[in-house]
């Protein structure tokens, strides 16, 4: 596989959320607003990329029988680091994300990439694969955050878009369902629907 493909494929043909259907839990939980979604996306990119590199460097020395626990140690170290950075610089968002930063440790995308890719690949491809999958996850997170905040709260990054457009005066109202997690699941479903109709080869028979 060419190095460029490692970044490109997770965007659409092998998107972690749309095709591998991993990491859906956090993508429902943190996308009610755009800002936490973006912060979460960046955190996951950092964790996946670095964890992939570290595990790839260690891959020949990790005994297969305890590889999961080694992976977990590496991932949790990185997550704790990320958590501390968030608390230091974006405390309010860190509070909003609450437990979900810590739960990056159990994010299936991280574990999946480590097991499926970093354990058998060299550091550079692993880095690219980590960044690629993190970006693939981020795209969906940001799209969801955008749609849900815009229609659910009428704002974008806290800016009252709908109010400035004057929509409330002509009877528009925010959609309360949008800020609830079930609607995020339905939106993910709609994106998958659109994505499959563009990529017929992904459709299950």
């Amino acid at each position: 596989m060419k190095n460029f493909d490692l970044i490109k494929l997770p965007f659409s043909k092998n998107n972690p959320i749309l095709v591998q259907v991993l990491g859906v839990c956090s993508c429902l939980a943190v996308t009610a607003q755009l800002k936490p979604a973006v912060v979460m996306a960046i955190s996951v990119i950092v964790v996946v990329a670095l964890a992939n590199v570290i595990i790839s460097l260690l891959r020949n020395t990790i005994p297969p029988r305890i590889r999961i626990i080694v992976q977990l140690v590496v991932v949790s170290t990185l997550v704790v680091l990320v958590d501390q950075v968030l608390k230091a610089y974006v405390y309010d968002v860190s509070k909003q994300l609450s437990v979900f930063v810590g739960l990056i440790i159990t994010n299936c995308i991280v574990m999946g990439r480590l097991e499926a890719f970093a354990m058998v690949q060299k550091p550079l491809p692993s880095l690219l694969d980590g960044i690629g999958n993190g970006l693939g996850y981020s795209v969906i997170l940001i799209v969801l955050g955008f749609v849900r905040e815009l229609f659910g709260s009428g704002t974008l990054w806290g800016y009252p878009v709908m109010e400035k457009l004057g929509l409330y005066e002509i009877g528009y109202e925010n959609n309360g369902l949008m800020i609830m997690p079930p609607m995020a699941l339905i939106l993910v479903g709609l994106i998958i629907w659109w994505h499959r109709s563009k990529n017929k080869d992904l459709c299950e028979q």
Partner: peptide, 10 residues
């Protein structure tokens, strides 16, 4: 149900 959860005030 959609109306109930999306626009509870109505």
């Amino acid at each position: 149900a959609f109306l109930f959860f999306a626009y509870p005030t109505h």
